[in-house]
Amino acid sequence: MLNYISGIMPALLSGTRMTLSIFFWTLICSIPLGALVGLGLITKFKPLAWILNLYVWLMRGTPLLLQLIFVFYGLPLLKPYAIIFPRYQAALFAFILNYTAYFGEIFRGGFQSVPRGQFESAKVLHLSYPQTIRKIVIPQVVKIVLPSIGNEVINLVKDSSLVYVIGLGDLLRAGNVASARDVTLLPLVLVGIIYLMLTAVCTIALRMIEKRSSVWR
C-alpha cells in the first residue's frame, strides 16, 4: 500500500501545485481589488456605486461553477465577439472576478464601520486624506475584516476544486483520475487529507495574523 501511495503521490502533488497556484493568484489579486471595490461601493459618485453594486449582486447571486463554465465554454460562443481564454487563465479570471465581489462586500462593511469621528479627528489634525487612509483607516479596517476574509480564504481552498469542470489538472482531478483508474478509494482519502492540511495551514496563519492585530482594540 505504501508503494501504491508513493506511486500516485507525484500526480497528487502536481495537482496540489495547480490548486495552490489558483489559490494564491486569486488571493493576491482579489484582496486589493476587493478593497478598491469596497471603497467604490460607498463612494458618493452614484453611477460608480450603482455599477459596482450590480457587479457584486451578479457575482454573489450566481454559482461560481456557472461563472467558470460561462467564462470558459460560454464566452467563445459569443460570435462574432468570441473571447477565448486558455483553461488556466479562464479559471483565474472567473475566480478573481468572483472573489473580488465577496471581498468588496466585506471591505465595504469594514470601511463603513470606521467611525466618522476618526475622520474628523484626523481632519482637525490636518492629516491629508491619503495619510488618514493609510495610518488610521486601513489598520482599523484590516482588523475588522480579518475574520470574514479568513472565512473566504478557507472557502477558496475548497472552491478551487471547481476548476475540475473546465478540465484543469488540480488536486481533486488528480485524485479522481487515480481512483477511477485503479478502482480504489485511497487516492480520494489522500486528497481529503491534503485539503485538510492546506486549510489547517491557512487557519494557523490567520490565527497568527489575528493575534498580531489584537494588541489594540
Binding site: P115, G117, Q118, E120, S121, A122, V124, L125, H126, L127, S128, Q131, K135, I136, P139, Q140, K143, W216, R217
Partner: peptide, 27 residues
C-alpha cells in the same frame, strides 16, 4: 486651532505616543 472631542476620538490602532506624534511628524 486644536480640538478635544467629547468622545476624545483617539486613534485606537496607535499607542499613546504615536497618537501624539502622528500629526506633528506627518503634517
Amino acid at each position: 486651532i486644536g480640538v478635544v472631542f467629547q468622545d476624545y476620538q483617539l486613534f485606537p490602532n496607535l499607542t499613546v505616543m504615536q497618537n501624539i506624534t502622528l500629526a506633528p511628524t506627518m503634517v
